[in-house]
Amino acid sequence: MLATGLATGAQAATGPLDYVSADGDEYTLEDPADGECFLLVGGARTANNGTNARATFYEEPGDCESQTLGTLQPGMARSFEGGTLPRAVRFG
Results as ranks from 00 to 15, higher is better:
Gly9His: 09
Asn48Tyr: 10
Ala3Gln: 09
Ala12Lys: 06
Glu60Asn: 04
Leu29Pro: 08
Val41Tyr: 11
Thr56Lys: 00
Leu85Gly: 02
Asp31Ala: 00
Glu59Leu: 01
Phe80Gln: 02
Phe57Gly: 04
Thr71Gln: 13
Ser79Ala: 14
Glu36Trp: 01
Gln67His: 12
Met76Leu: 14
Asp18Pro: 00
Tyr58Ala: 02
Phe38Glu: 03
Asn49Asp: 07
Glu30Met: 06
Ala3Tyr: 10
Asp63Glu: 13
Ser66Arg: 03
Thr71Asn: 14
Ala22Asp: 12
Gln73Ser: 14
Thr71Cys: 03
Ala88Ser: 15
Phe80Ser: 05
Gly15Tyr: 00
Phe91Ala: 12
Ala44Ile: 06
Pro86Thr: 10
Met76Ala: 14
Ala53Met: 03
Tyr58Gly: 01
Thr46Asn: 10
Leu72Phe: 13
Leu69Trp: 04
Leu69Ser: 02
Gly70Asp: 06
Met1Arg: 09
Gly62Lys: 08
Gly9Lys: 03
Leu2Trp: 11
Pro61Leu: 04
Thr4Cys: 12
Gly75Asp: 08
Glu65Arg: 04
Tyr58Glu: 00
Ala33Gly: 07
Gln11Ser: 14
Gly9Leu: 10
Thr28His: 13
Leu39Gln: 10
Thr84Gln: 11
Cys37Leu: 06
Thr8Asp: 02
Tyr27Glu: 11
Pro16His: 07
Ala33Thr: 05
Gly24Pro: 05
Phe38Ala: 01
Asp23Pro: 02
Gly9Ala: 12
Leu2Gln: 08
Leu40Lys: 01
Ser21Val: 08
Met76Thr: 13
Gln67Tyr: 09
Ala10Thr: 03
Thr84Met: 11
Leu85Arg: 04
Arg45Pro: 09
Asp18Ile: 14
Gly62Met: 05
Thr4Trp: 11
Gly35Thr: 05
Glu59Trp: 00
Asp18Leu: 07
Asp25Arg: 15
Arg45Tyr: 13
Val89Gln: 04
Pro86Met: 06
Leu39Gly: 05
Ser79Tyr: 07
Arg45Ala: 15
Asp18Arg: 15
Pro74Phe: 11
Gln73Ile: 09
Ala12Arg: 01
Thr56Cys: 04
Tyr27Ala: 13
Leu29Trp: 07
Leu17Ile: 09
Thr51Asn: 08
Gly15Ile: 06
Glu26Lys: 15
Ala3His: 11
Gly43Phe: 10
Gly15Gln: 07
Gly35Cys: 08
Gly43Ile: 11
Arg87Glu: 13
Cys64Ala: 09
Asp63Ile: 03
Thr71Lys: 15
Gly92Ala: 12
Ala53Arg: 15
Glu36Ile: 08
Ala33Phe: 10
Ala53Gly: 01
Ala22Val: 05
Thr56Trp: 00
Ala22Arg: 06
Thr28Phe: 04
Ala22Asn: 07
Arg45Ile: 09
Val89Ser: 01
Ala47Trp: 12
Pro16Thr: 10
Gln11Gly: 13
Gly42Gln: 07
Ser66Ala: 07
Pro86Lys: 04
Glu36Met: 12
Met1Glu: 10
Ala12Phe: 00
Gly35Asp: 08
Gly15Pro: 02
Thr51Pro: 03
Ala7Thr: 10
Leu39Ala: 13
Pro16Phe: 09
Leu29Ile: 06
Leu39Glu: 11
Gly70Gln: 06
